[in-house]
Design a protein around this nucleic acid. Sequence first.
DNA 1: GGTTACATGTAACTAGTTACATGATTAG
DNA 2: CTAATCATGTAACTAGTTACATGTAACC
Lengths: 202, 202
Amino acid sequence: MIELATLGLLKEQELHGYELRKRLGELPGARSAVVSFGSLYPALARLERGGLVKAVEANTLPAAVPSSGSLTGELAAFRSRRAATTRTGRSKKVYGITARGEAALVELLTDPVPTDERTFALKVAFCRHLGAEARLELFERRRGELAQRAAASARKREPERLLDRYTRSLRERDDETLTNDLAWLDRLIAGEQAATPEEPTQ
Amino acid sequence: MIELATLGLLKEQELHGYELRKRLGELPGARSAVVSFGSLYPALARLERGGLVKAVEANTLPAAVPSSGSLTGELAAFRSRRAATTRTGRSKKVYGITARGEAALVELLTDPVPTDERTFALKVAFCRHLGAEARLELFERRRGELAQRAAASARKREPERLLDRYTRSLRERDDETLTNDLAWLDRLIAGEQAATPEEPTQ
DNA sequence: GGTTACATGTAACTAGTTACATGATTAG
DNA sequence: CTAATCATGTAACTAGTTACATGTAACC
């Protein structure tokens, strides 16, 4: 999940970890992909080791530092420069996606293994990086899974009078939620078929 | 989560692990509480060590085994009896909830820490074990959390034209889902207020 | 000059999963 | 008798979390 989110965001723009997390929180898909730093930074390190992302020049060199004569000023400028270039010390570390990373992103987006809601929301958020065909497949596969769930739920429906008030209410809500999600997917699918193949994805 | 589910089910009826899991899968709250055996059995052991549940007499003794003269039959009956009583070998191990377990269940149900959807669904599934007051509080606390989320989402709404088709669709769905869940909670709350305090919970 | 927000990272822990190993019961 | 299903359990792993440690930049 965190890999998908990271690669998806880095595909659009180079970012450092802290900013990445902020963007993650802004992504729709509600109870979305906000992750803790304690999992984000190790994930970035992992992706870097795997060659899916790479640290790029952090352009944080204080723009136009006039040689101030101030000893501490000079020192700070030096440290800042060194940190940005050699990555000792602790300054921003900006990552970009690599070619391997882009391939991995498509891989993750097209992986047919059924996913939880959050991951599916992430896939939709980044599905513009997919071809029209793969995108449609993504939507329809999900639709199939939900339809199957709806059928299973209909099959095992107990007689209403056996359930308590709250269990009954939960079941009703489940059904509504499923119906709504199916309708949403139908809209997405219809939207795909409406879009002329010639038009660019965005 | 698994503790809540286990205690909630055992409060109604004594069950063994395998059956417990089956029931878990039948609970509404859809993508519900089905857990793997690899996490269920250790959880039961943990709960037993903590004195929240206890293994009760497994009444699997083959009912009325007529002394058949068959050597293997006698042996099987012996093994079965021994397994059921001394818990060597591998036969059904039926658990029941203890007084401490019942207290812990109420504790879990009233814990005010915000939870994910699955856990909240479990709380609703077992909320009949709560007093009318605590139950109403459960619903209203959740309602407050969702309302806050809705407000936050409204606040940070980006101008539509900046988002791509899919992100826009995701956001719409989020809003609908939130609205539906709020309406559901409102129905639950209204139902509580409609129920006369004298009426038994079920 | 001190506080707040930005920024990165590690260690210990949590709550589950899959894969495996084993045995008992039931039905054809 | 043998295959399927019921039943329990352990070990290794996965994907996150919280708590902590540390340092930088901005601002008032």
